[in-house]
Design a protein around this nucleic acid. Structure first.
Lengths: 351, 351
DNA sequence: CTGAAAGCGCTTACAG
DNA sequence: CTGAAAGCGCTTACAG
């Protein structure tokens, strides 16, 4: 309020204590709502707190109490809407619990991930939510993080196995998602269904392929090996690989895609060949990114509710902070089919 | 490495000092790369640091030195791709400078904004990057933040004026962007051009409308008042308001939209009326969100390069930390037209 | 080139 | 119900 040239200097507990003629201990008790303090004293202190514009210094409190009210969130990249939603969910739930989110991005680089974690660790997070960069080495991560800081691994399994390493794990039900998509297409009458996109060596791709196989097995059908086409999980790569679907006759009439980016790329690839998803070829994605609902046609897909996953991840790490001794838990988050317009029954494609 | 049941307990400077037969002061000097320390001593300390798995406690250092290596980033919502990109840029630049990002989301609520700021302030950020919630009151914010913590306001002006309040300001060149879009449509032969979407009382909307007027003025044309149609800046609202464009004859043949969300909604609204953007009506957006490049048709728009803006915001706040006394600076970030397929010359729409 | 002492802003036993 | 003292993990003068 007063126009000061020099920065005012922080108001501390001591200042407030002095001005109210009390000890710092008493003011501290007021701050944390202790019932030990007399109501009059409390009122007096609170007035003084307000008057001086006191701001609690959580860092000092944490140092003294050897606690931390921060949780580090390490993700690939916020420009991926899936992770942006996830981060929003994490931040929301952490804020509600009185924690602050320390953000770090790896850009899918294992080296940057080490650097980012090292830096975040210096800020003494109570726990870490880590969506590992592709190719992350569990042992190396563990050597860096140590065993003082609990970690929740999200989405991707670490190479040497997460659960065994004693870290919690939250995964999407990849297998069930792909099974749901495949079953739905089978119900629609399709028999020649491709699994399109993704890399065989990624754990999520393996799991989704497994769900695809499962649905075929349940239907008593054996999928042809050439219906499995690999490609990098990007729109561009997928568009470029579209041709691989039609090299042999009879070609597939439908595809379960590794993710939405791939599905969107496939739809573009189909357009380029004079075909249209939902009209003469059925396409199902995975993720339900925001674009899926506004593509043309809107994409039928498997939704993973990333924001809800974020909240769940935050809850899991908070729970771990409350009870550090309970054995590591591995959670599989549900997933569901969202029907839009990119699929259709077999008849139409035969026409 | 050793399977401990009980948590290991933090390794401190004292531990390392003791083990190397030195004082804490010396170890501290090693940590910060002081040239005062003998090379041999340094080597000895560094080996011990590694051996014990020492992790620097930046919070303790900051407390002692009365410094902070955190910057708070308060935004509306990460699920908005514009802000997600912005946040990614901020985080990237802060990380490079050795700072950590404290994340907070307001969800466009002025009350939550107060709460989030209060909470972040307790974590003692060196500075704050604030993209204010709509309707934010500058005086109220300033009362909360005080004048110890520098603030960079991004994107939206505060109600009582930012610059006067002594805070730095980074804005998009809204006016120039809208002028570029309008001029381009005029060049294409359009004369009846709507300004579609946004709320009159938001400063960015006012500025964009001003750019629109400017282009008309330069062309010596007076726009009709009914070409200004308001609506909330969401896809859904925009789709619903599409009809307002065609209530009077002759109707506009083109629209400059408040933002991409509105433009996408308008394109949907046009489709519903049997029209198609880029074919018989010209549409230009603002923001260049990722969806703009994959909509159907891809959207011609004004790009604000949000990631680059994020980096810029981080640079500005870091600069302010270096020199707290320099007068508040107000920066206007450039903006440019990205041509895609949702516009077209007038002739085609006349056909 | 290295060490002893004080202190950043808090909280936690321990007295009274 | 309130206060005096010690200490969280660091850094900063000040000596030597």
């Amino acid at each position: 309020m007063t126009p000061n040239a020099s920065p005012p200097g922080r108001v501390t507990l001591s200042d407030v204590a002095k001005a109210s003629g009390l000890s710092r201990a008493t003011v501290s008790l007021v701050l944390r709502g202790s019932p030990l303090v007399h109501a009059d004293t409390r009122a007096r202190v609170e007035a003084e707190l307000k008057r001086q514009g006191y701001v609690y210094h959580r860092g000092a409190a944490n140092l003294r109490g050897r606690t931390s009210t921060a949780v580090a969130l390490v993700i690939n990249d916020l420009s991926n809407p899936f992770f942006a939603e996830f981060a929003a969910g994490v931040d929301e739930a952490l804020a509600t619990a009185g924690f602050v989110t320390l953000l770090g991005s790896t850009g899918e680089s294992v080296e940057r991930q080490q650097a980012v974690l090292a830096s975040l660790l210096e800020h003494d997070p109570a726990g870490i939510i880590l969506s590992p960069a592709e190719g992350s080495d569990g042992a190396r991560l563990r050597a860096l993080v140590g065993d003082r800081t609990p970690v929740l691994v999200f989405n991707r399994q670490l190479h040497d196995g997460t659960t065994e390493a004693g870290w919690d794990f939250l995964a999407l039900d990849n297998q069930r998602g792909a099974r749901l998509a495949t079953e739905y297409l089978l119900d629609l009458g399709h028999r020649r269904i491709a699994f399109f996109g993704g890399h065989r060596d990624s754990s999520s791709c393996r799991q989704r392929r497994e769900g695809y196989r499962e649905a075929f097995a349940a239907a008593g059908i054996t999928p042809e090996p050439q219906w499995l086409v690999e490609c990098a999980p990007t729109r561009l790569e997928a568009a470029g690989q579209t041709g691989a679907l039609f090299v042999r006759d009879p070609a597939p009439t439908a595809a379960v895609c590794y993710n939405d980016a791939v599905a969107l790329g496939l739809m573009a690839g189909l357009s380029a060949r004079g075909r249209r998803a939902g009209h003469d070829f059925a396409v199902i994605g995975f993720d339900d990114i925001p674009e899926a609902s506004v593509s043309s046609p809107p994409l039928t897909t498997i939704a993973a509710a990333p924001r809800e996953r974020g909240r769940q991840a935050a809850e899991l790490i908070l729970q771990r902070l409350r009870d550090p001794t309970q054995p590591p838990i591995s959670t599989v988050a549900p997933v569901h089919l969202v029907l839009r317009d990119s699929d259709m029954p077999l008849q139409r494609s035969a026409a």
